[in-house]
Amino acid sequence: MRIHRFEKLWLAAAFVLIAAFIATIVYGSLGAGVAMVGDEGGTVDPDDPTASDNFREPGVYQTGDGEYAVYVEARQFAFAPGTNEPIRVPADAEVTFYVTSSDVTHGFELVGTNVNTMVIPGQVAELTVEFDEARTHHIVCHEYCGAAHHAMEGTVEVVSQDQFQSQDVPEVNEE
């Protein structure tokens, strides 16, 4: 089979491009530490997520020194917490979100950040992040979830460590 010289060069360049793309992703995972949402969150009963061992009453919990867990339940058309009251977390701390849905599929995204996950009934999305600065983030439900989908939103307030300590946050022991 005859392959033109230019075509061989092009083919080689294409392979280099593909290898380079995969390398950038591997660097992002191993070097920069961008972990994917995976199956770590486990599964829950979609009708009653808090009945399962791996989901708590929605809210913010302190789980260790500088470590916090935020349990969020999404349902048509609000995040609890997030919509009626903002989610308050400290800056420069390890914050792990556990997000699930008790009705249909939703999305959970902090606009302009890489906190972005699908929220699927029966599954718990687990994401760990660290906020560098104190500011308010806008939560968007980015998956169509029904007639008032566009009204489903909320806020995350990242406050400085000093301000946060005055808050009353239950401490729990995460295994």
């Binding site: 995976g38 199956d39 972005n116 999305a125 687990e126």
Partner: peptide, 12 residues
């Protein structure tokens, strides 16, 4: 489904 929970990173 990169941002789907319930699917291990390796399969992604």
């Amino acid at each position: 489904q990169y941002t789907d929970p319930g699917i291990a990173e390796g399969f992604k």
